[in-house]
Amino acid sequence: MCLGIPGQVVELVDANNQLAKVEVAGVRRNINIGLLDDVAIEPGDWVLIHVGFAMAVIDEAEAARALEGLQLMGQAYRDEVALVRESRIA
């Protein structure tokens, strides 16, 4: 459950609730970016996502590295991705 999954910001969808749409694990889902309030997040940025919240801004190379590591985890990562796909944060 402690995984950080990289995702790429597609658009900012709800300034009030600090939600952004990200491309993560092959799907587009909303996440909360409010914990990174001090950083101006823009479409195209990569973030590390934990339980539906952006926890750090990362660069593209780090995103690729993190993804590679996650894929090696096998089942634990697949289970997490299945939950991401069902996520309906709004």
Partner: peptide, 8 residues
Amino acid sequence: RFVYSPLD
């Protein structure tokens, strides 16, 4: 039920 996020 399983959830991915507390927001779910």
